[in-house]
Structures are given as structure tokens and as C-alpha cells.
Write a protein that binds this DNA or RNA. Structure first.
Length: 485
DNA sequence: CTGGGGATGGGGCCC
DNA sequence: AGGGCCCCATCCCCA
């Protein structure tokens, strides 16, 4: 019995020793693994810290850039001119009497444009001399196999004179006109296109990350414009070609009118940033002050098709090959920025190689501006005659206004239309200082001075200078008028 | 305040 | 393609 007890005791002690040994071994293993684990964790943490630092540096860079941009915009904004944005959109005629007029509703969600897959984008420069940024939509059948570039050197219209008014407005000169200083230097005629067709094959955007090509304006053979850093700021994918034609044209012979590309006196002299409306932000600003002084640029984005989709982010589809061929995405990317400033639609190019999906943030200024543009768009569509810019009529109206996407049948129509957005009024009356966006409007206006009233009422002796007014007058006889008002 | 004329802005259509 | 004309909407001014 005693032996049995001793045996059990020995077994128990052995078991205990074994258990202790096992526990010790386990603990050792755990400790080893834990140490390794700790080491790995610490390394990961180090990496995390490094990445975080990088991120912070990047954010700092971005913030600095934004602050810089904001400062620039504030400087431009604080100009004494107070060229009201609305004035620009209202055309500055008659002291902006339209401010409360028919274009009251200014906020409208932007159209959501989506650029379709496999649709190459071609940028080509239109003819003429006026500033023009518009988008040409090419239907599948119209686009043809290869996207071509067109550049009509477009001899400058002799009427495009830089008729700088010499102030001292007489008669019914609008306030803006009277405020024009006669010392406003003519802006350099800068022809800026996102595609330099006539050479400079280097001006190509190779890929999204090919920032070397993009920032190397010098390589393009085109000297950067003043403040050219703006051209690239925030939009490294941009490729610009700048061309200073520097020609000054003589006024036409028409004594009654001149084609004046005037810079409103209240426009800041150093508004060279506007000479490049390709940047989104600049573009936005251009919507307000991009005015008579800058009519020489033509930028065209040819897009095979534009599609409107609900709230889906807009997508650009870029054919890389076209980019290699000297097409630049600069404008498209600006267009992106521009649209980002809208109420939400993100316009991006989509393709085999997505080019850009990141949008620059906007400020309230830009938002307001774009609201106005949108309003114009809304109004245009509300008018309904032509339908939306991206209506089924796109087969014929392939040229889009890049401000409001309204479609037109030819680039010149777009050019004229875009004066709504830019405030450009190249036609000035020499008898007063009224200026007009269209030649025919000037011609009609000149009846005010000539007293010509070719429209006479058959019911009474009244005569009118405009057919519309006669028609309105006729309603008096028919009893229609009073009920209208 | 209202009605009517004068005038401009802007788009569509035609040549 | 480009210019011109027409039309409509709208605003301003005045009696």
C-alpha cells in the first residue's frame, strides 16, 4: 500500500515536471512568435508613418497650390471694376437692364454629359479669329475612321480690328462703355489652341502620367504665355500650344460700324490669365470677364458623341492614339475642371486608358459662374426650339458650346452663341458706343441713328424700325396687346 | 400703375 | 460655311 502511494507520488511529480516543461516550451514559442510579430508590427508601423508623411507632404503641396490659386482669384476678383458676373452674362447693354430679366432662374443642375466609349476625341482649331472653345460632336458615321485635325488658318477678318475706343462716350453709351479708359492696352493677340496642328508634333499627350511632356511647354515650340504656370496648374495633363500672332488689324471701311474687340476698361490690365481659358478655374473666371479683349483663341474639342446620363459621373473617352498624334487633352481636362465646378456632374474621359477622373475642387465663385452658365443652358433648352444641345439632332448639330453644351450646326454659330457666355461684343456702333455680339444686331441698332422705320402699320400711321415692334403694335389694333400685358 | 413704343438679346431659318 | 433676316422674349422709358 505504501509502495503504491510512493509510486503515485512519483508519477505525480513527474507529470508536474513534464507539464511545467511543456508550459515553459509553449511560453517560449509564444514569446518568440510574439517577438517576431512585434517586429513585423513595428516595421509596418514605420511604413505607415512614412506613407503618412508622404501623404501629408502631398496634401501640403495641394493646399499650397489652392491657396495660391485662391489668392490669384481674389486679386482678380477685387479689381475695382466690379465687372459683375451677371453683367457679363447679360451683355452689359443698357446698363445691364436684363439683370432681373428673363434669365432670372440661374441655378440648374448641369447637364450630365458622358463621353462615350471608343469615341476618339479630336481637337482641332477652327477658323476665324475669335476666341472659341467649343466641342464638336461627331456621330459614329460622321466621325470617320480616323480622327482628323482641321485647322483653317483663317485669314483674319479685316473687320476684326482692335478698335480701342477712346472713351468719352456720347449719347447712350452704356455704363461699361463709358468707363473704358482709353489707355487700355490691347491684349496681345494670342492664339491658343490645345492642338498645334501646324507643326510641333511634340505637343502630344502620351499618357496620363506623362507629365514631362505636359509641363514641357517649351518643347512644344510655343512660348508659354504670361503666367503660364496657370496653364498647367492643377492640370498636368494639359498640353498647350501658344501662338502669338501679334497682328493688328485695321478697321473695316464701314464707317457706321466697326468690328471692335474692345477690352472693357474695367478689366484688369493684367488679365493675361484669361488669355488661356483652358484651365478650369481660369475658364470659370473667363465666363465672367473673358470679354472683348480676348477673341482670338479657338479651341475645339471634337467628340464623337455626347451622351447625357442621369447622375452618373461624366466620362471622357480618349483615344490614346489621337493624343499621340499631337492632340492634347488639356482642354478636356479643363473641361473636366470646369464641369466639376458645376453642381456635381463630373466630366471625365473614359477609354482604354482613363485619362482623368480627378477633379479640382471649385470655389463658390466658380459655382456661381457656372450657375449662370447653366441658367443660360436652361434657358436655351427651355426655349425649346432647337431642343437640347445633345438632342437627337446631334447628327447635324455637332458643335457644342463648351459652356452650356448647346449644339449648333457649325462652329461659327457656336462662336456667336458663346458670346452670350463670354460677354464678347465685337460689333460696336460708331455713333454711340453701344456694342453688340452680332453684326445684324448692330445693323438693326443703327436704325436708331438713321431714323429708318421700314415697317409701317396698315391700320394707322405708325411706323417702326423693327418688324417685331410692328407686330406687337398690330396687337393693339386687334385687341390682343392689352390682354398680353 | 398701366399701356405702348423703343430697343436689345438670342436663336432659328434661309439664301 | 457664312451672313443676313426673322422671330420671340424681355427690359426700359415715358405718357
Amino acid at each position: 500500500m505504501a509502495d503504491c502511494m510512493v509510486f503515485h507520488t512519483q508519477i505525480a511529480s513527474i507529470m508536474e515536471v513534464l507539464a511545467n516543461a511543456a508550459v515553459a516550451e509553449i511560453c517560449k514559442l509564444v514569446d518568440d512568435d510574439y517577438a517576431v510579430f512585434r517586429l513585423e508590427i513595428s516595421e509596418s508601423q514605420k511604413q505607415n508613418r512614412a506613407l503618412r508623411r508622404k501623404l501629408q507632404i502631398q496634401e501640403l503641396k495641394v493646399a499650397r497650390g489652392r491657396a495660391d490659386r485662391t489668392m490669384r482669384e481674389r486679386v482678380l476678383d477685387s479689381r475695382p471694376s466690379s465687372v459683375k458676373i451677371l453683367d457679363q452674362f447679360r451683355g452689359m447693354g443698357r446698363g445691364g437692364r436684363h439683370l432681373t430679366g428673363g434669365h432670372r432662374s440661374f441655378v440648374k443642375p448641369a447637364g450630365h454629359n458622358t463621353w462615350r466609349d471608343d469615341q476618339p476625341i479630336t481637337v482641332h482649331e477652327g477658323s476665324g479669329t475669335s476666341t472659341q472653345h467649343f466641342i464638336m460632336i461627331e456621330s459614329a458615321e460622321a466621325a470617320g475612321p480616323g480622327v482628323k485635325q482641321e485647322r483653317s488658318e483663317g485669314g483674319e477678318d479685316p473687320r476684326h480690328s482692335r478698335d480701342i475706343q477712346t472713351g468719352s462716350a456720347t449719347g447712350v453709351a452704356p455704363p461699361v462703355a463709358t468707363a473704358e479708359p482709353n489707355t487700355t492696352p490691347a491684349q496681345p493677340r494670342t492664339q491658343c489652341s490645345i492642338t498645334e496642328v501646324s507643326g510641333t508634333p511634340n505637343a502630344a499627350l502620351k499618357s496620363e502620367t506623362d507629365t514631362e511632356t505636359l509641363t514641357g511647354l517649351g518643347q512644344l515650340g510655343c512660348p508659354p504665355a504670361p503666367r503660364s504656370e496657370n496653364l498647367l496648374y492643377g492640370s498636368p495633363r494639359m498640353v498647350l500650344s501658344h501662338q502669338d500672332s501679334g497682328d493688328s488689324l485695321q478697321a473695316g471701311n464701314d464707317q457706321s460700324c466697326s468690328y471692335a474687340t474692345e477690352t472693357p476698361g474695367d478689366m484688369p490690365v493684367g488679365l493675361d490669365t484669361q488669355t488661356n481659358p483652358m484651365r478650369g478655374e481660369i475658364n470659370l473666371y473667363s465666363s465672367s470677364v473673358y470679354s472683348e479683349g480676348h477673341l482670338e483663341k479657338k479651341e475645339v474639342i471634337v467628340v464623337d458623341e455626347v451622351k447625357v446620363e442621369g447622375d452618373a459621373p461624366l466620362t471622357w473617352n480618349v483615344d490614346e492614339t489621337h493624343l499621340r498624334e499631337g492632340h492634347s487633352l488639356g482642354n478636356t481636362s479643363d473641361f473636366l475642371d470646369y464641369n466639376v465646378v458645376t453642381h456635381s456632374p463630373l466630366l471625365t474621359f473614359r477609354d482604354r486608358d482613363p485619362v482623368s477622373t480627378s477633379m479640382a475642387p471649385s470655389d463658390s465663385h466658380g459655382r456661381v459662374l457656372f450657375d449662370q452658365v447653366l441658367n443660360s443652358n436652361k434657358r436655351n433648352r427651355a426655349k425649346g426650339k432647337g431642343g437640347g444641345a445633345i438632342s437627337g439632332n446631334s447628327k447635324e448639330k455637332r458643335f457644342l458650346c463648351m459652356f452650356c453644351n448647346k449644339a449648333f450646326s457649325c462652329p461659327q454659330k457656336v462662336e456667336i452663341h458663346q458670346r452670350v457666355h463670354t460677354g464678347e461684343k465685337p460689333f460696336s456702333c460708331t455713333q454711340c458706343h453701344m456694342r453688340f455680339a452680332q453684326a445684324c444686331t448692330l445693323k438693326r441698332h443703327q436704325r436708331v441713328h438713321t431714323g429708318e422705320k421700314p415697317y409701317s402699320c396698315t391700320q394707322c400711321h405708325m411706323r417702326f424700325a423693327q418688324a417685331g415692334n410692328l407686330k406687337m403694335h398690330l396687337k393693339v389694333h386687334t385687341g390682343e396687346r392689352s390682354s398680353d400685358i
